[in-house]
Design a protein around this nucleic acid. Structure first.
Lengths: 187, 187
DNA sequence: GTTATTTCTTATCATTTGTAAAGTTCCGTT
DNA sequence: AACGGAACTTTACAAATGATAAGAAATAAC
């Protein structure tokens, strides 16, 4: 997935503004297993995944909790680092070799003040991510783990082939043992 | 809490732009128990709570699930209606008599295209709400209902006096019975 | 290709949470 | 002040989930 296509899918803006924005991205080739918080400065960068699969997780009482998956076209950033500039509780792990597009957050925020189309691109970007976050929040509150599992593999069946089940279990908010029981029940 | 203060707390912008934005709001006095989806068009409006308390809920299998509380200064809108323009799964209930500031969503989006400061105000608004939504999502995944209950009353102790416990239980993702057990354990 | 390691599943038991129903307290109405 | 109804708590039992451990399958290392 190329950069122009990714930018357009967020929100189409005039060619000139899009070029201005696109110029500020650099392409990175990264290895499976890389942790972006440790190896890159995720707090001060915004990434988009061109190829590959990634997860966001946080550590609670020594246990990793996966709360997000991203694949081709997904944004990859620390929301807390990006929005508030504060240190983040999260890290991002590449689950496959990946191609990323990176932009410096400070530079992006500068563009927001200079170009109204880019500002609205950033607004729509945040709005769409907000809607997704709220839908996941409600889904978690309203639906059982089994329903959420069915939904996940309906939306993105590849995830079963590409991500370890323990991460999927964590994402669904259950233990790997419970996910096994769910899977045994279904098939 | 007055409108200017609310707008400033989202993101301060130059006086002229702020005036332009503020002009488009109207003030509404509403009664406790009012449902904004039924009585107002929440899909096409954005509100801010000047006074009062409100909740957002959705109905799942005939059961109301409260997924959000808002108080003085909080935005009050259907994210889905606002972002995607589609029909929403949610309704907003006023838990107290309330004073609201209302702006038409179409008019607001028009302002975004005309004034870069307002566009960035809207961007920061979405970003901040996004961060809150993500923090709640992670909190729900990582913390027990008891921890989230303690946090809620630490952040907003008034909620115990102003909202029925069954809504708080629903918000925490447990039944009223379980919330009673949590409360009995604590005190 | 074999071995070693990790991942996933299955089984057992303990804990937590939900459901249903009964009891108590709190509020508003008359 | 008394009544009626709603909200909250408590109890008993059932169902679901977690923890632990052992076994099977898949993957990686050599």
């Amino acid at each position: 997935m190329d950069l122009m296509q990714i930018l357009d899918e967020v929100y189409p803006i005039p060619e000139q503004s899009k070029q201005l924005l696109a110029q500020c991205f650099e392409q990175l080739d990264c290895r499976k297993g890389q942790l972006l918080f440790q190896t890159q400065k995720i707090g001060s960068s915004v990434y988009f995944l061109s190829q590959g699969l990634a997860r966001a997780y946080t550590v609670q009482d020594g246990v990793e909790v996966t709360f997000w998956f991203g694949w081709e076209g997904s944004p990859l950033l620390s929301m807390k680092g990006y929005v508030s500039g504060e240190h983040s509780y999260e890290d991002l792990e590449l689950l496959e070799n990946a191609v990323l597009f990176r932009i410096d957050a400070t530079q992006l925020k500068h563009l927001f003040t200079k170009d109204i189309h880019i500002a609205n691109w950033g607004r729509v970007f945040a709005e769409k991510e907000l809607l997704k976050a709220e839908e996941r929040l409600i889904s978690r509150q309203v639906k059982t783990a089994e329903m959420r599992y069915r939904e996940l593999i309906a939306v993105y069946p590849d995830i079963l082939l590409r991500a370890p089940l323990r991460h999927i279990a964590s994402y669904l908010g259950v233990t790997p043992v419970t996910l096994s029981r769910i899977r045994a029940n279904i098939s």
